[in-house]
């Protein structure tokens, strides 16, 4: 295994993860006023509703798919009697479908960001960069589907298993880069691009993901503070 693969799949994940977590924390503490989704909907509404929904539905679905697909213990699949190959088909069709939704929405947003003069003027370079990067990552991910389909047609779920095991090895702090060092290049590129998203995350508008307003679902109707001295 060469040093590039060792770095990319043994060290880079921790680098990206550290920047992601520490960076997000620092930005949250230091730059409260920059903690925003930087929505441009105010500047131009045409087509945003459709594009944004397609993009967000797609990408949230893909994210959850990756989370579950890579990190869920194999025992769960056994318990529901889902074969590895079956799981691979679900990933292919489900992921493919969501990926295409995301791609359509993302491409629309990208086009808007480049051509709409108001959005373009107000947007920062990082906005265009991160959108482009996500789309490239997505395209790489979608193109792995064809190889996965080939594997599947041969009844082979090894690559996918290897990916999941590698992901777990990272999360469990016993990195095993060798698990995927031999995988097709396209997989490795997709992984690299994906990890880079985490690396740049704190420096972009993506931080708004942290602030998904789940709290609203369960919050009290009235939130007050007291100025009574005894309130402590």
């Amino acid at each position: 295994m060469d040093y590039i693969n060792f770095f990319a799949f043994g060290i880079y994940p921790y680098l990206a993860g550290s920047v992601f977590l520490i960076g997000s924390w620092m930005r949250f503490d230091r730059e409260q006023y920059g903690w925003t989704s930087s929505s441009s909907q105010l500047l131009s509404t045409s087509g945003v509703r459709l594009a944004s929904n397609l993009f967000h539905i797609g990408i949230i679905g893909i994210f959850l798919g990756h989370l579950v697909g890579l990190l869920a213990p194999f025992s769960i699949w056994h318990a529901v009697s889902l074969s590895m190959l079956g799981k691979q088909y679900i990933a292919m069709y489900g992921g493919g479908f969501l990926g295409i939704l995301c791609l359509i929405g993302g491409a629309m947003l990208w086009w808007r960001r480049v051509t709409n003069p108001r959005v373009r003027a107000a947007g920062r370079a990082s906005d265009l960069f991160i959108l482009t990067w996500l789309l490239l990552t997505l395209l790489l991910g979608l193109s792995t589907t064809f190889i996965t389909a080939q594997h599947a047609s041969h009844g082979n779920a090894d690559t996918m298993m290897a990916m999941a095991q590698w992901a777990k090895s990272i999360v469990l702090f016993s990195p095993k880069p060798e698990l995927i060092a031999e995988a097709e290049l396209i997989f490795r590129l997709h992984l690299f691009f994906g990890m880079t998203v985490f690396l740049v995350f704190p420096f972009t508008r993506l931080v708004h993901i942290w602030s998904a307003p789940f709290g609203y679902l369960a919050r009290a109707y009235q939130i007050v503070r007291t100025n009574r001295a005894s309130a402590r």
């Binding site: 949250f28 503490d29 109707y221 009235q222 939130i223 007050v224 309130a231 402590r232």
Partner: peptide, 28 residues
């Protein structure tokens, strides 16, 4: 001190409730 650490204090955030839980008193 840290906005982030404050966010983590969600267990002690609520000092008391009123109106049958429809309102809460916080010390954010």
């Amino acid at each position: 001190m840290s906005h982030f650490l404050d966010r983590l204090k969600f267990l002690t955030k609520t000092k008391e409730t009123f109106s049958g839980g429809h309102g809460i008193v916080t010390n954010e």
